[in-house]
């Protein structure tokens, strides 16, 4: 379980989100919704340990992220798959090298076994034919797919984090990325945290939803809870 217990996060002295209390149960996908700059992505940085909580604590399967030292943090991050907003693929490496990067770094597998795993992952995201291409040759949607394949390279990622996975994509590509997120969820039973401002995509991928407004969580629940909410901010969000 991913759990935020009265967590405040920020940069320097500036608090971005405060007193956050949310929990993602095993095998579920929680979507964090909110307007731009509300601190949604900051929550992901907290889970990754890139930002330390100013107060409160974040635990993943019982490990308090803030208490991990540098070495433990590197090991902890190996259990997490992260899909960045624009993919964040390494532009000096080919698609295959990007997907196999984790395996080259953290396993002593022979090259042919790594290549087999890379091809399996690329087949899963339907991009095996671009294995030798560089990221700059890919479209936005293809980059996100490769990023998802890369995030799944560790044999059993326990947690998948998605930062605005459909931003800037056309509706058809967005839908295919959402389907892929659902497919990852169904096949690997990981806990997922998805950050987005797109309500349609949120309903496509999420089991639970959490709204952030004015640096606080104003509502957490399933789709029905969200749709029945009387909160003016959520009503406005739903109506757009």
């Amino acid at each position: 379980m991913i759990q935020f217990e009265s967590v405040s996060l920020g940069y320097g002295d500036k608090v971005v989100v405060s007193d956050i209390n949310i929990a993602v149960p095993e095998g579920k996908t929680m979507v964090i919704l909110g307007d731009s700059g509300s601190g949604k992505s900051t929550l992901l940085k907290g889970v990754l340990g890139i930002l330390q909580p100013m107060s409160g604590r974040i635990t993943v399967d019982g490990d308090s992220v803030g208490d991990l030292d540098e070495e433990a943090l590197l090991l902890y991050r190996q259990r997490i798959g992260m899909v960045f907003q624009e993919g964040a693929l390494f532009d000096s490496l080919t698609v295959g090298e990007n997907v196999g990067f984790w395996l080259w770094e953290h396993t002593d597998w022979p090259d042919d076994r790594i290549e087999e795993r890379v091809r399996t992952l690329l087949r899963f995201v339907k991009l095996e034919d671009v294995i030798d291409k560089r990221p700059e040759a890919l479209s936005g949607g293809m980059k996100r797919r490769v990023a998802i394949a890369r995030a799944m390279a560790p044999q059993d990622p326990q947690v998948m984090l998605y930062d605005e996975p459909t931003t800037g994509l056309d509706p058809f590509t967005s839908r295919s990325i959402c389907d892929l997120i659902r497919q990852v969820q169904a096949e690997f039973r990981v806990m997922s945290l998805v950050v987005t401002h797109d309500l349609h995509d949120a309903f496509r991928v999420g089991d639970l939803f959490s709204f952030i407004h004015d640096s606080k969580v104003i509502l957490t629940g399933d789709r029905k809870t969200i749709e029945e909410s009387k909160d003016p901010f959520i009503r406005t969000f739903l109506s757009t």
Binding site: L48, R77, E86
Partner: peptide, 17 residues
């Protein structure tokens, strides 16, 4: 540029300093 495009964050996330 690697920093601006989150490639350095991606390295950290993948357990590489």
């Amino acid at each position: 540029m690697m920093n601006a495009t989150q490639q350095i964050d991606a390295l950290r996330v993948m357990g590489v300093d």
